[in-house]
Computed example of a mutant assay.
Amino acid sequence: MGALPANVEVRLVAPDPAPLPDLTEVDLVVPLQRIRKPLLEILAGPPSRLRVIQTLSAGVDWLIGRVPEHVIVCNARGVYDAPLAEWVVGAILAMQRGLVRARDAQTRREWDEIEPPELAGRRVVILGMGSIGTAIADRLRPFGVDVVGVARTARTGARGLDELDDVLREAAILVNILPLTSETRGILDARRLGLLPDGALVVNAGRGRTVVGDALLEELRAGRLRAALDVHEIEPLPADHPLWDLPNVLVSPHMAGESPDSTRRAFELAGDQVRRFARGEPLINEVARYLLE
């Protein structure tokens, strides 16, 4: 986090089972997993000193409906753009160019004849055109694909969510990078998944619950769609979940944005925010209230 001003007192969260610091006495908190539950309890109680929650993640869905008006939430937007975009491109290439099938054949020691489709010339729809979606688009365009972005509202370079049905009908590859909100929960349901062309690839690196899992599973079991999934409705994905055994599915354990560099950037951001707060300067990455409702 770097050097902090003299007027900042830091209270570290020690590993379990060490006692937790008194969160009612802090003005700004960087919530690691261990203090999420006690933090939510404080947010549900009478007003405390807490004024800022600076997450180390881009997603803040665990705070939906829990944050009073006087508390500002800031996320780690920008921290995970590069590794997450790399994962998406890698997953698309692995599925599109037959690398997953080749690896499966390798485990069986079989010399399988594979003629996978090219990526060039395909239409890739990116659902969620924030900083991560933009980074994905920038890395995909050199492959000669037709990138179509979809944002909450239409703007230059992105179509609006109200056009989603039309966009899905021509998507050879759908990249879902949406955050989980009351508006996006289950947005990719059976009807919308049914709009995708036969053989389309669904790549989900946003939030698992933006997709209706049973509806996607039905399409995958039928072999009509393919999928590369880093996020899931239930995490960790249960060992007996049918997704593990489907040959047209690539599963990874919610690690698309993880890297030593992204961890370093997350804590550097937290340190910068503490210094801004201590100096009375405006904070960055403030989360819009509609994302917390």
Score class of each variant (00 low, 15 high):
Met1Asn: 09
Ser131Met: 08
Arg108Ser: 09
Pro197Ala: 12
Glu293Leu: 14
Val145Gln: 06
Glu9Gly: 15
Gly213Leu: 05
Val203Ser: 01
Gly149Cys: 12
Val52Met: 02
Ala239Pro: 01
Leu188Tyr: 07
Leu12Ile: 15
Leu216Cys: 11
Arg123Glu: 09
Asp16Phe: 09
Ala171Asp: 03
Val274Leu: 08
Thr181Ala: 10
Met1Lys: 01
Asp22Asn: 13
Arg264Gln: 11
Asp272Cys: 01
Gly121Thr: 07
Glu235Gln: 15
Ser252Val: 12
Ala18Ile: 02
Glu25Ile: 01
Arg51Gln: 15
Asp27Met: 01
Arg103Pro: 00
Glu218Ile: 00
Leu193Gln: 05
Ala94Asn: 09
Thr107Gly: 01
Ala6Leu: 08
Pro117His: 00
Glu9Phe: 07
Thr153His: 13
His254Ile: 09
Arg185Trp: 04
Ala76Gln: 02
Leu43Thr: 05
Asp22Glu: 13
Arg159Ile: 07
Val8Phe: 09
Leu292Ile: 12
Glu170Cys: 04
Val212Phe: 01
Gly128Pro: 09
Val52Asn: 02
Pro17Lys: 12
Val150Tyr: 04
Asp81Leu: 02
Glu233Gln: 15
Asp240Glu: 14
Met1Asp: 10
Ala171Pro: 11
Ala14Thr: 08
Thr55Asn: 04
Ala215His: 10
Asn75Phe: 04
Gly157Ile: 12
Trp111Ile: 11
Ile187Asn: 02
Leu84Pro: 07
Ala227His: 01
Gly90Cys: 05
